[in-house]
Amino acid sequence: MCPFPQITRYFATALTCLWTGLYLGLCAGGAIADGDHAPIGDAIQDVPLFDAHMHYKEPAWASYPVASVIELMDRSGVAMALVSSTPDEGTIMLWDHAPGRIVPELRPYHGDATSQNWAKIPDMQRYLEDRLNRYPHQGIGEFHIHRLDFQDEDLFRAVIGLAKARDIYLHVHSGTRPIRWLYSLDPEVKIIWAHAGLGEPAAAVYDLMADYPALLADTSLREFAIMTGDTLNPNWEKILYDFQDRLMIGSDTYINNQWEDYGRIMAHNRRWLAQLPRAVAEKIAYRNAERAFGLTISMDQIGTR
């Protein structure tokens, strides 16, 4: 028999209260967490989108005049778009028409300069510098690095210098190795990884994003891999949650068929965004772009120029 029954009862009561409190707290916390993590669902339709990978290439100019491009954006709830074009005149045409909706970036491709040879074109640095001085581009790209050639280092150092001097991004279409190489040239370079690597498996995307905490990525052309059927692909779901502050959506209107499918592409982006909590969905839909480019993005921009 315990010689101190009152003390025993006291500790038993205290322990019961402690466990009850913890249980209720965990339950309450779980309820809050469940609420915080509830998918945004149909409410995603009221969220503005930022298209972080749009092109307005010369073959589209006749079929899709500038006013029609803005109308396509309006119908899909796309408030603003990051645009690069072959040649750059396409981007400037769109920006002139709707400066409140277009964030221009400078693509190197023009004349004989293509995705295959642009780094070998004489006076490429001078071309880029001239265009950057004339127009308010917020990035250099989207450009391709199909095959890493260390003989191009001088040009890439110059391109990085142009971007850093203006505090703008490089928008790079490549695998993981060129991204690592660019960071080796300058760890402070600002990069948007086009298509989140496109051909790279989800595991490689995760590893690169984890290794470079400042790296941004757009998910254009990935929208049908991110969501399989009616659910998020588990590998991509982990990427979306773990790097929610560094992802943006995109359309990649690189051919006219993409313009024809623009509404479907953006609708599918909304489908997978709808599976995410509001806070995460809004970041990827537009808030990350607001932070990256110093913008204010809202549905109020729809129907404006």
Rank of each mutant, 00 (worst) to 15 (best):
I70F: 09
A98E: 09
M124K: 13
G29F: 10
I7H: 04
K120Y: 10
A113G: 03
T176V: 11
A14E: 11
A203L: 04
F11Y: 11
Q151G: 15
D167T: 05
D152I: 09
Y241M: 14
P108Q: 12
D96S: 13
A43W: 08
A81Q: 04
L247R: 01
A204E: 12
P108C: 12
H171L: 11
D230V: 01
Q258V: 06
Y212W: 03
G175F: 02
W95I: 00
E71T: 14
H97R: 13
A52F: 01
M73K: 08
I191W: 00
F243M: 04
I265T: 09
F50M: 00
V280D: 12
Y254Q: 12
T296W: 02
A204S: 08
D242K: 09
L215W: 01
Y241D: 10
R270F: 04
G29R: 03
D300G: 11
D252W: 05
E129F: 11
V159E: 13
A204Q: 07
D34K: 06
L49K: 00
Q6P: 00
H146C: 07
D46P: 05
I92C: 11
Y241K: 11
W193C: 03
Y64W: 15
A67C: 11
W193D: 05
I121M: 13
I249G: 06
A14F: 14
Q116P: 06
Y56K: 07
A79P: 00
W193N: 03
I121Q: 10
D261M: 13
K283H: 06
N133C: 09
N117R: 09
W118P: 12
R126M: 12
D74L: 05
F4V: 03
A62I: 09
A113V: 04
S220G: 01
H173E: 13
S68C: 10
M80V: 04
I284T: 01
P136F: 05
A202W: 02
L215K: 02
R222V: 00
I284M: 00
E223K: 07
P178A: 09
R157C: 13
A281V: 05
E282T: 03
I239T: 00
R147W: 10
T219P: 03
Q125D: 14
L247Q: 04
S251T: 14
G29P: 01
F243S: 02
Y23R: 09
W181H: 07
R166D: 03
V189L: 03
A292T: 04
R305P: 07
